[in-house]
Design a protein around this nucleic acid. Structure first.
Lengths: 125, 125
DNA sequence: AGACCCGGTTACACAGAGGGAACCATCATG
DNA sequence: CATGATGGTTCCCTCTGTGTAACCGGGTCT
């Protein structure tokens, strides 16, 4: 961790982003937002996430109060995950980000291709 | 990288998040949004980022069309960075996320403390 | 000549993210 | 008894992210 001292807001944002802004957290929140309730293996199949990472990420999400874990002691066991209120509130900015991502990915790809072409030309020419 | 095949939207979002959701990109965008134009070393000082990471991240941001790089061949050299239109549009969801983060960080901390206390009690008791 | 400024780049090292596979516990089925 | 399903956990290994430190290159000041 660097000093981070310069811009206090930055480090706060960084903190939360680091916690909740990783790849899987966001995708899990999005999935739970869509389907309301999902079981462990449903999430696993839906996201193509490894069992290990799903378990880890869900626990962190639960710890942070974003996700509810409901354990049904049936045989075989059944565990359901859903968003808490906090998770629901997080859904909105995440959706905004997701929407932006989906909307602008083509533009980004284009910009990237252009940049690569230009720098390639610079190298060759 | 996993299969990612299950939920196509997820993998797209993941893709952009992976690109633009790292530690520094977001903070650079926020800083540039605030100050309009910043020089290399201004960013460096403001964020407390290492020279290497700043250089790397800025190049990626430029490559993705989010940031403009203006090189003034003066002595000593002067390089100015600013947001492109795309970068400006990215600013909004990022701000939404940042705002959520700042608002809910206390709640998260609280939830976390509660969770830790509970699991500690479970372990001890 | 040597030191300094700016904006980078390169070499090296370390921590953490993340995947894969095997193991666990429990009951049902064949 | 072996197998399967569910929801995890644990071990091991790799790959990436990130930091530190040193160097570059041109010009200016001393």
């Amino acid at each position: 961790m660097p000093k981070d001292g310069q811009c206090p807001e930055c480090s706060r944002i960084n903190e939360v982003l680091h916690r909740v802004g990783d790849r899987w957290s966001v995708l899990i929140v999005i999935s739970l937002a869509q389907y309301d309730v999902l079981r462990f293996n449903e999430l696993k199949r839906h996201l193509g996430i490894s069992q290990r990472m799903l378990s880890l990420t869900l626990r962190e999400l639960e710890r942070d109060g974003l996700v509810n874990r409901t354990y049904h002691p049936t045989i075989p066991p059944k565990v359901e995950y859903s968003l808490t209120e906090l998770g629901q509130s997080f859904k909105e900015p995440v959706y905004a980000l997701g929407k932006w991502a989906l909307t602008h990915l083509p533009v980004i790809d284009e910009a990237r291709a252009e940049y690569d072409a230009a720098s390639n030309q610079a190298k060759t020419g």
